[in-house]
Design a protein around this nucleic acid. Structure first.
Lengths: 223, 223
DNA sequence: TCTTCGATGATGAGAATACGCATTGATTGT
DNA sequence: ACAATCAATGCGTATTCTCATCATCGAAGA
């Protein structure tokens, strides 16, 4: 496993390289986008871990390039800023994950490994809506939506099966530990929560109900 | 779609019936060959899912019978044994598929469905008319038709048996949970709905009534 | 061939039912 | 005590069924 680290804070990139080595990853470190591109040309990387803002530009400038040349390379963006816009921008450009500084190193490794194992990203991105199951976080047009727990999981599951009818039973099976111990009514409650906290304040429709058959995530809504 | 399950392990046959229901199949469950034969006599099944060894005999004893009486009924045999001989025997007798226990439920469903829709997809596409049973959606010349619930199911069933006369009893058996509890008049009502909401606005004829015998889906209509 | 009549299907209206929604209060675990 | 989750409830609406009536078909007889 070979990782390219593009990061201009020297203390941080040393820590990263050393830390990752202990977990069995070989990594190369560069401090500018230019150097990064150079390395990407001469070597194949399984993963690129790059800062968002760099002295000679922005990570977004090279992400699409990487994704077209070597689509399998996983890209993870680090950002110092608590800035939703850049997260959206990064993901849209093709990044697979987005991690905010400061971060716990073990968490970072866990997420990198999850990405590597999985191949792609867990993050669901539809239109201006971003659902990040790992962080249990939803962002719509730069604003975070307060939706946690079961309702969040229901939304996530439905979003993953976009445009398909998902029955209540399927939702129970997928999300609840012991589906037989709860009534399907809990789904309705969860759906209600979603509509109260997402659809209503944002003036959008994410989930439509298909009588007798279940629910369907359809967003953005066709006319 | 109606399925007969012949299986003597109670936990298994419950799982099967419930699981299949979620996939949109109506199933009856019996635990012996004798009962199985009885049900086969009074009802039409699209598929028979039977255990190989049963308390009162072997599935091979009834397979040829089913295949002569109702050749279209698909027969799938389940066997607890890791036994090639019985598989050969079952297939030779006329079974359409053979699945070994233990099995993954999703695999089972996939195989059943593969058997049921002769290799193609579930979507019925005739001329400019598209019927999608999964999404409960009808499209004619790029326009969606509002037809849901029972009338939708009736239409679907008839379309699946294009050009064949389907009796009201067959429709009841195939679509209603307890056909004996409703009058056959409900079919007429459903047919009426279809004609009001599809044929009339679109200026087409999809279902013709064959007096005393049933209904026949014949579209597009030959001159 | 025409007419009549019984049987079968079509249709519309209203009743019965099933389903989903929203709210509430209880329960659980932190 | 607080937050999350769930069961229970009543309510409104969409669907489904029944029933009563009307139309149509087709066979039998004139």
């Amino acid at each position: 496993m070979r990782i390219l680290i593009i990061e201009d804070e020297v203390t941080l990139n040393k820590t990263l390289a050393e830390g990752l080595k202990e977990f069995g990853y070989q990594s190369d470190v560069v401090e500018t986008l230019k150097d990064g591109e150079y390395y990407l040309d001469i070597r194949n990387y399984d993963l690129v871990l790059t800062d968002w803002m760099l002295p000679d530009g922005n990570a977004v400038d090279i992400i699409p390039d990487i994704k077209t040349k070597t689509p399998k390379t996983v890209i993870v963006v680090l950002s110092a800023r608590d800035d939703n816009e850049s997260e959206i921008e990064a993901l849209r450009a093709g990044a697979d994950d987005y991690i905010r500084k400061p971060f716990d190193f073990d968490v970072l490794v866990a997420r990198l490994e999850a990405r590597l194992r999985f191949g792609g990203s867990n993050i669901i991105e539809i239109d201006d809506l971003i659902i990040n199951p790992e962080e249990e976080k939803i962002i719509y047009r730069d604003k975070e939506i307060e939706l946690k727990g079961k309702p969040f999981e229901v939304l996530t599951h439905l979003a993953r099966h976009r445009d398909q009818i998902v029955s209540k039973e399927q939702l129970l099976d997928a999300i609840w530990e012991e589906p037989e111990l709860v009534t399907p009514n809990v789904i309705e409650v969860a759906i209600n929560q979603i509509r109260q906290k997402m659809d209503k304040p944002l003036g959008i429709t994410t989930i439509e109900t298909v009588r007798r058959r279940g629910y369907r995530f359809c967003f953005p809504k066709e006319a």
